[in-house]
Design a protein around this nucleic acid. Sequence first.
DNA 1: ATTAACACTTACAGTTGTTGTAAGGTTTGT
DNA 2: ACAAACCTTACAACAACTGTAAGTGTTAAT
Lengths: 231, 231
Amino acid sequence: MIGGECVEKIVIVEDDVFLRDELQNILEKEGYSVECISSFDTPLEDIVSASPSLILLDLNLPKLSGFDICRALKAKGIGPILVLTSRNQLRDELHALGLGADDYLTKPCHPKRLIARIQKLIHLYANMHVMLDAGDFQIDEMANILYVGKDSISLSENEGIIINALLKASPSVVKKEELFNLLWGSSDYVDENILQVNMTRLRKTLDGVGLSNRIKTIRGIGYQLIGGDIQ
Amino acid sequence: MIGGECVEKIVIVEDDVFLRDELQNILEKEGYSVECISSFDTPLEDIVSASPSLILLDLNLPKLSGFDICRALKAKGIGPILVLTSRNQLRDELHALGLGADDYLTKPCHPKRLIARIQKLIHLYANMHVMLDAGDFQIDEMANILYVGKDSISLSENEGIIINALLKASPSVVKKEELFNLLWGSSDYVDENILQVNMTRLRKTLDGVGLSNRIKTIRGIGYQLIGGDIQ
DNA sequence: ATTAACACTTACAGTTGTTGTAAGGTTTGT
DNA sequence: ACAAACCTTACAACAACTGTAAGTGTTAAT
């Protein structure tokens, strides 16, 4: 093991069983926790729910294009993505990098090079702001800063929690109870209209930067972030 | 020009005049502002004062090792560093990446690949927390968070300004007037002991996370961050 | 149309964190 | 010993955030 103790989880998206096992072997020897995902099943959901520190992605998937996975993951702010492929054409590399891949290695690749690149990417991402993208605005989840155009405003804790939940679920509806749990899950009692108050406050804040009517009320169910159309 | 308007500045550290001109040509066509620095002169100071969006570094510098530059820049939190070199040995790549290089390309390198990698790195760094390193503690300058060991505490605005100024100047002394300017430069009048009060508060905060006696008073001059010995 | 459930808005007050002021104590160098 | 420089502490003002409360508006089913 080269790099001290690791508890980082790496997801391998690769259908070739032989290659997959070899990669898994290399990475586990290095101390990483490894999860293998096939392009059959439901790769996107599986990757998201694994919440890995890095995604090792093959481009030559029989079922689904690696490019599509790349694009989809990046839209959700998930990464880093290291593409490891036998396609050594420059145009593939440019395409993958353009879609959001963070590094591009061609097979055969020396294990040490692979490990070095993986470490690099994981370290880079550890120091990154996670930027959630809603199309016409972005949110720095960690710092609770909302960017819209050239402006940026800082959100309060509650505002951040709500908009993050809405954005991550978008375009799905977020149930009232979910928001209650996120915000006051540990409190024994809060006034029942507290969520409405906080929704009003968030809406007013969004209004202030030109983002009007972006939170829709689903009567009896919850709230939904609309517009921006990143999907 | 591939990637829209750019005003990013790239510093090329390369002594071979022919290669340098070629690179400069490619980058400027792409819309980047380019500054060339030779390893003769004072490369480190020149790079720092240029404050580039990216450093394009050759390893084969006759005067000074590219590795040394790499290490020195990273200690100061300056980056990203893209190494472009004719040394195509794996051990050189591993060494460079280990010292802090963010990408490693070997010549000859297709201009489009170079540009793609440059764009990638600049974009990554734009979303990064700038982490200032004092050896035994780190500071996220943007979010005003101080990391020491596994703990992290958030600093107040004033605390952040002071510790950042001290850290960036370290191990030099920061003059009282400089701090006054940073903190209350726009105010017409503040009490004369206000700086002392804020130094006390910062010291107490640092004490709270085990960082005692790290700010030395230079009587009549200013303050100095000591210990940590990163240099 | 009526009604009850649901949602929205506004004002108020408690809490917390930050900051400048003031007053008094301590250290330092000569 | 003495004065300048520095440190510490307490206090109050201020701003931001948040929950409560009360009243208003909206929706959908009867």
